[in-house]
Design a binder for these strands. Structure first.
Length: 855
RNA sequence: GGGCGAGUGGUGAAAUUGGUAUACACGCGAGAUUUAGGUUCUCGUGCCUAACAGCGUGCGGGUUCGAGUCCCGCCUCGCCCA
């Protein structure tokens, strides 16, 4: 056996071995104990850095661990390969997106392999390939038939730099999540998915997702944003000049109908559809129109931000508060957004923004909720009171608790037919049209005589043309291909035109986990039997940045596909693990997420060259709790490398002892894997130091297994293996050692190899063979704890006096409470501390400590 | 402004969920091996102290025999929603 750890030679060898033996190929039909281990599939952007690696290394470790536990693990991989970067590269360099993407896929596949991350490549999916997007288009058509896909004109988010519209979810703090450009509003005809039809189910079913981090569930809950409130119609006071308009009321939605007696004006969004009509011909018209124009230049973010001055204009019109019969002014305000009714009933006394607005424009303020202390005085208020209290000056509702008043006042509105209780969601329908080339074409056709017609299923896929002009000018590039645009109407056969927009790439990634299970099926999108057997995914692993977008869309798709009758489950991911990002200090001295633009990427190639894949894997897992952010430190890699070298050296140094004749059988003696799990070692014949090491080995197995089954505590699992190695060195084995000691030593070493194999698989494979086993450590059984080994005859206990540690005692593990107390009181140092004191109480915590309370 | 999470050595971080605070590693210091550097192997490493003792988990209170962990109030940072 080589003296030094030859990582360069062995890693390629074992990667080939895993491939050649199809170790990660899963027979989906015959598997008896399915475990679907899924990692978020990457966008093939070029090269992966070590920050990206965390996702795949965690996933690979889980897959290998589960495999050793006897599961039929399915770990597929694929490519979320439609999207802007490929298209932007085409604009810049002229390389066609398909070519650019294919090249990147080759590179990244090699990188994953070099990390030792192995997948069932037979089931690879690539979302930009016709055999995949054919079925994305097919799903679109099914959604269309169900009324889940529809086209409408609306104000949409427009990213001028990406030259396309964006979904609400893709606008973060008013800027495009991709390129950070400020997002404008634009009125366009666009395709939507009716995700709002599933809002309640998406919310309710979050409660069933026990295996999801609460953080992610809370984020989704907030995003869906269910609120219970009332929609109230305020009658419009007819114009004084007698001119008629057809508007008899303005509806507004509120979650605080209890404050409505304090409503002193109403504010409309500048985009409110009736606004221009309401002011037509009035002296205020010019000012209002001007205001609408000025507001349109502000982004939604500006309009909602606290720092931006709230502005408005009086419209010259009045409404009637249906509860009080009072006449109130109708305003237009830039802080009102055109969501829902686009109208806000303003209650300055009980809403911060209304309060500021009323002060600014000298509008009346009326108290309608009194605080529980009864101490609110209108003239002394410096800001709105928004908490709960009791209704005052609220007609028949005065004196009622405000929460109760919401119910009664909503009921009142319903009885009087001027309003109704309404549940509102923040969630908007999902805008999926994109004015870009590199995406799945939306399979719809426009015919002069038949209108909007869905393409025939047998004509799918509608292939992306290649004769297009790429330019980011807001016109869909597909329009430049006449061959693509001109088609036959699927209904009447006449000349027609295709939809020129493509689908948001999040559509592709909303169902790829289903396609892995029927990746090569050219006859259907989803194979029901296979999907029902393997889904939901047992473990999904990915970045927290997808907490809302991708994970919400995927849940929506799963529910919609279930409603189509194609599958019988309605949540896609049973357990979700979101790993933290890897950060590193950049040239600017600050900590940033590892990214090319920050100049702080560590590329794996150098590290693999210098230390090997196992070191990079081990360090990545050891760096910290996997769900938290972590700072990459180059010196840390050194430590991981040192540890692997040490394991190697310990085995090579003692190779003769480990594989020598006369060593008692231990759990994994050569040939044992054929015979199943052999009997554990016999504790009763062991000398004390041997028994200590044997105990430590079993404690380590227990600790690691518990950690990996609950959370993914890779960092402490690796620390535990390091501790075990320290204990192994402590035993100081030599040729003169007893056979029993040698057996315990071998058992400990074998377990180190088994326990580290999910994390550092190449070295584990090599050492497994060196220890005399048939190749394929991941086919070995995950070690079991020998309960006998954990027992102790004697235990050490801490003795505290008044909660401070004063001494330690050794007692028989069978000792009674009285015996322990006696031993504690007899301890020498304890006696000193007890001198002249009265013992008030003695607490005995079995197996841990004794605390003597004195006065 | 609301919600959630975090704050522990010089550094990354542990702590069986109320029971010996700082496991494991990095770094640093001392020694051994080596002709040298590197490697490897010992030993040491929270603060203060000659030692005993004392003090130590962002700050201030509380509950408890006992609090990093639970409760109340603050400060700072991160994320989501406003």
């Amino acid at each position: 056996m080589q003296e030094n750890y030859p990582f360069q030679g062995i890693e390629k060898k074992w990667q080939n071995f895993w491939d050649d033996n199809g170790v990660f190929n899963t027979d989906l039909a015959t598997a008896e104990n399915p475990y679907y281990c899924l990692m978020m599939f990457p966008y093939p952007s070029g090269k992966l850095h070590v920050g990206h690696g965390r996702n795949y290394i965690i996933g690979d470790a889980v897959a290998r661990y589960k495999k050793m536990q006897g599961f039929d693990v399915f770990t597929p991989m694929g490519w979320d390969s439609f999207g802007l970067p490929a298209e932007n590269a085409a604009i810049k360099t002229g390389t066609p997106p398909a070519e650019y993407t294919a090249a990147n896929i080759v590179t990244m596949k090699e990188q994953l392999r070099a990390w030792g991350c192995m997948y069932d490549w037979d089931k690879e999916v690539t979302s930009c390939m016709p055999d995949y997007y054919k079925w994305t288009q097919w799903l679109f058509l099914q959604f269309y038939k169900q009324g889940l896909a529809y086209k409408k004109n609306s104000n949409v988010n427009w990213c001028p730099s990406c030259a396309t519209v964006l979904a609400n979810e893709q606008v973060v703090d008013g800027v495009c999540e991709r390129c950070d450009s400020e997002v404008d509003q634009k009125s366009m005809d666009q395709w939507f998915f009716k995700i709002t039809a599933y809002a309640q189910r998406l919310l309710d079913d979050l409660d069933t997702l026990d295996g999801w981090p609460t953080r992610v569930k809370t984020m989704q809950k907030n995003w869906i944003g269910r609120s219970e409130g009332a929609e109230i119609n305020f009658p419009v006071v007819p114009r004084e000049d007698g001119a008629g308009d057809n508007i008899d009321h303005v509806a507004c939605y509120t979650t605080r109908v209890d404050t409505i007696h304090g409503c002193t004006y109403m504010a409309l969004a500048p985009e409110h559809p009736e606004l221009k009509n309401l002011v037509k011909g009035l002296p205020q018209e010019a000012a209002v129109l001007e205001f609408i124009k000025a507001s349109s230049k502000l982004t939604n973010l500006d309009r909602e931000a606290d720092e931006v001055e709230k502005e408005g204009r009086f419209t010259g019109r009045y409404l009637v508060n249906p509860y009080t019969g009072e006449k109130i002014e109708l305003w237009v305000g830039n802080y009102v957004l055109m969501y829902g009714t686009g109208a806000v009933m303003a209650v300055p006394a009980h809403d911060h923004r209304d309060f500021a607005f009323a002060k600014k424009y000298d509008l009346p303020i009326k108290l309608s909720i009194q605080n529980p202390e009864g101490s609110l005085v209108l003239d002394e208020m410096e800001d709105a009171f928004t908490e709960d209290g009791t209704c005052v000056d609220s007609g028949p509702f005065s004196g009622i608790d405000n929460r109760e008043a919401i119910k009664q006042m909503t009921a009142h509105a319903e009885e009087q037919s001027f309003g109704k209780g309404k549940i509102n969601f923040r969630l908007r329908d999902w805008l999926i049209s994109r004015q870009r080339y590199w995406g799945a074409p939306i399979p719809m056709v426009y015919c002069d005589s038949c209108g909007v017609v869905p393409e025939k299923e047998e004509n799918l896929p509608i292939l992306l043309p290649t004769d297009v002009k790429f330019k980011a000018e807001g016109e869909s590039p597909l329009k430049s291909s006449e061959a693509f645009m001109n088609c036959e109407c699927p209904k009447c056969g006449g000349a027609a035109t295709r939809e020129s927009d493509t689908m948001d790439t999040f559509v592709d990634s909303s169902w790829y986990f289903l396609r892995y299970l029927s990746a090569q099926d050219s006859a259907q999108a989803i194979d029901a039997a296979t999907a029902n057997k393997w889904m939901p995914v047992d473990q999904y692993i990915g970045g927290i940045e997808h907490a809302i977008l991708h994970l919400l869309y995927a849940r929506f798709f799963t529910k919609a596909i279930k409603d189509l009758g194609l599958i019988d489950f309605d949540e896609p991911f049973k357990h979700l693990f979101t790993q933290g990002m890897i950060c590193k200090k950049g040239p600017d001295g600050n900590l940033h997420k590892m990214s090319k633009s920050k100049g702080n990427v560590v590329s794996p190639e150098e590290l693999l060259e210098k230390y090997g894949a196992d070191t990079v894997r081990l360090y990545t897992l050891f760096i910290g709790p996997p769900e938290k952010e972590a700072e990459w430190q180059d010196t840390g890699v050194e430590g991981a490398s040192r540890f692997l070298k040490r394991i190697w050296r310990r085995i090579s140094e003692n190779h003769d002892i480990l594989c020598g004749a006369g060593i008692p059988a231990c759990p994994s003696t050569p040939g044992a894997e054929q015979a199943g799990r052999p009997a554990p070692l016999d504790v009763s014949t062991m000398a004390d130091p041997d028994r200590d090491l044997y105990r430590k080995t079993n404690e380590t197995i227990q600790h690691i297994t518990r950690g990996l089954d609950g959370a993914f505590t890779f960092n402490t699992a690796i620390a535990a293996i390091m501790e075990l190695m320290n204990a192994i060195d402590h035993l100081k084995i030599s040729d003169e050692s007893s056979d029993s000691a040698k057996g315990v030593f071998r058992d400990a070493i074998e377990n180190v190899v088994l326990l580290i194999s999910p994390f550092a698989p190449h070295i584990a494979e090599e050492l497994w063979v060196e220890l005399g086993h048939a190749p394929g450590v991941m086919n070995a059984d995950w070690p079991l704890v020998n309960e006998e080994a954990l027992k102790r005859d004697e235990i050490e206990m801490v003795v505290q006096v008044n909660g401070k540690v004063r001494d330690k005692i050794k007692v028989a593990s069978s000792a009674s409470k009285e015996e322990i107390e006696a031993a504690a009181l007899a301890a020498e140092k304890v006696q000193q501390w007890l001198e002249g004191k009265t013992i008030r109480k003695i607490i005995v915590v079995p197996g841990r400590l004794v605390n003597i309370a004195v006065s």
